[in-house]
Design a protein around this nucleic acid. Structure first.
Lengths: 238, 238, 238, 238
DNA sequence: CATGAATGAGGCTTCATTCAT
DNA sequence: GATGAATGAAGCCTCATTCAT
């Protein structure tokens, strides 16, 4: 999962990147959905459907109707709907980590590097043409509204939770290290960064559904600048 | 729902407070659960049960078994399990608002006032003996893990969502005004405060379940001081 | 469950008997099927259906279609189909125990008493008009073909197995004591009697389905006399 | 299937016996499981699995997981799980018939011959090293708990039932003839012997699971002597 | 010959709710 | 006002099987 990237490899990396396969923990599926057309279709439409009706209302039966296959087919890929959610969530964070690594790799200025990192995790998500069967925008909306909550269910056992959170932790860890590169004595880098990552999600959600809890309106740039400002203020005073 | 309290009314208020009934939006229930023993029992045990098994697994049937009454009885009080969740959540925020108002009311220093406000929304919740049928500690855990998410479901219609969020918004609004009392030109008080309120919840959750995402360990005081620090850093630099 | 019957009470007992309710262990059902018309209908038709298609093929769905009620209704009475089988089996053995006690109670000759007991457990079952919703003949066929086997399933927990077998054991125990009344030094009364009870069942089954394993043809009297002979031979030589 | 063995052929027979292949009715399988490693593995592990979880819970899917092959592979050998059960049951009885024939063949005393025959069908089963892929002890446990019942299912058609019972009948027939060798006028040799064979099974089962229905404790010898005694008592008095 | 993919049908169960008392 | 009975709909999942490779 960890990527060691070097500046002089950038051009080759760019090519590589466009064809990279997002590798999700094998324990999260029974059969790799990336290994067949049907598998991709399942993932693709699950994102559409969960975005539309919410995870609680989402069932394999309904997804089956969407893709014209029986539920039983979907069970060949995922143990149950919770594991499917864990899968797409993991995919999302893995994809974000790739982008984070790619975006910050060859930046020598620690401040610039941290700014870019914050931008990656707070800016609005855009469709990534490299993964045509994944709608990252909708997926991001799912993460925002269903994310953390989903992992509480007893259906997802401890081991799987660990596996799933690994990527999330890795992102927080990477950015925390960037914070320490700037202020080695800062005491709470993980708390700061996890607050930023989750806070950005929430503000997007509030701006759409509960505007009186925010001041950002529809302007997503404000979210980036607010959280960038927040981090650098803390580093100055923390 | 909004309380306008003035300093010179404090003594009377203290008395009042100890016997105050938390008044929850009437649209959230069919029959006021506070109006009968059975109603209180329903609320009391719903908190225990949701804390134990999670909201998704929670059903009126299971609650009925707990309290020794049939499901149909619970339906006399709440339209469905979502409304019951909205009810207890509203109760929580209303209770928190009372405590917020009470704690900040007679404080003349704007900084001290804001500090107290931040403490109220970030410090660990303790059992409040005035409401013996409500376990505020467990209720707080429910808010943390089920909170926002719960209100998306189609079962809770728009009108009710409004009603429910009113108290939450009121709290954010009050503290935002305290922020503006200190820094009248600060641009994003609502964003800041909602980030703090939600962030504190998350950090508590992370410290319990995903410690590598935080630096606060088991020390809840650190959460209060981190977010206090965060707010004042922003005000200094924002 | 144990009945203490005295000879001089016989006439009264006869009256009582005709109106006696067969009392089955309460743990075997959720709601007493004897307490409602629907409950009786469920039991009545379950016996018909299991006899027709076998227990493995039997489902609450099919039973529901038979009685014109949804499966869910049946679930209000029995936890699952295994418990329903345990219920009707228990009913059968309880009913048989009543008949055993009734038939042997006032018999002073130990030999005659034992003969009557053996007859009760080996002779063909006849419809008992006191329980119009139970077809004892079909029920007996179910006991013969599904009986012991059924209790192995993991669905029926240990406690319930205990409860269920209690009546069966009680019957074997009663007849074993009659054996000891005749031959106090006989070493294996339980083995002998359980072999007789089960053996009689099997011979009936074989005579219907695998005639070359028996010599009794369609003549059920031969079964009674064979096993009576077997018991008394053993007592003479054992 | 019937074996006609004569005393003077014993030595050759002994050699033969050690390398003998238990020949099961060809209609019971699609491809002879004895003809490939995989086939033997299927049989071997089906015995383990049925013993562990019971026949009702047993599926080709679960067996496939055990042996690391897909269900579809197992379908090449057996039409369905019922036929597999019939196969292993037939194997068991065929194997028992070989042992019966072998053990009684050169015994001139009719009483001794019958005693040996009774021992074969009532004594505890021991692992037979000649058939390393068959665990006879577990197989015997399966016969005891699933046996007769299994053949009722509609899946096993009449013809197959005939085929399957042939060996069972042959065993009963052989021992019945030994009974008649001693008491030519005895009326119910088949009933007697089938009662003994099934009764011995049951007593083993009861001693393990329902001890109050037996007097044999853990002592399997008692089962042999009880049934030996039973047979000879009957012959004396019958 | 062995396998992997796919599927339709159905089993078992719970849910959320209504109605009559 | 509280309860008990009843139910239709749906959820979740496994089975047994076929087909193409």
């Amino acid at each position: 999962m960890l990527l060691y990237l070097h500046a002089n490899k950038l051009t080759r990396l760019e090519k590589l990147f466009s064809s990279i396969k997002i590798q999700v923990n094998e324990k999260l599926f029974i059969k790799d959905p990336d290994s067949s057309q049907l598998g991709k279709k399942i993932v693709e439409h699950s994102i559409y459907l969960i975005d539309e009706i919410g995870f609680e209302e989402f069932t394999f039966k309904k997804l089956g109707v969407r893709i014209g296959s029986p539920e039983s087919t979907i069970y060949r890929y995922f143990e149950n709907k919770h594991m499917l959610l864990v899968y797409i969530t993991s995919w999302y964070w893995t994809w974000l980590e790739y982008r984070l690594v790619f975006s910050t790799n060859n930046i020598s200025s620690p401040e610039e590097r941290l700014k870019r990192a914050i931008a990656i995790v707070t800016e609005p998500v855009k469709q990534d043409s490299n993964y045509s069967h994944i709608n990252e925008v909708k997926l991001n909306r799912i993460i925002i509204s269903e994310s953390l909550k989903a992992y509480f269910t007893k259906e997802v056992d401890e081991a799987n939770k660990e596996g799933f959170y690994m990527v999330y932790k890795s992102i927080v860890q990477r950015i925390s290290e960037m914070v320490l590169d700037i202020s080695p004595k800062f005491k709470h880098p993980h708390t700061l960064i996890s607050t930023v990552v989750e806070g950005a999600h929430q503000q997007k959600y509030f701006s759409e559904h509960l505007p009186s809890l925010t001041d950002v309106g529809n302007n997503d740039d404000k979210i980036v600048s607010f959280f960038t400002n927040l981090v650098f203020s803390m580093l100055k005073n923390g």
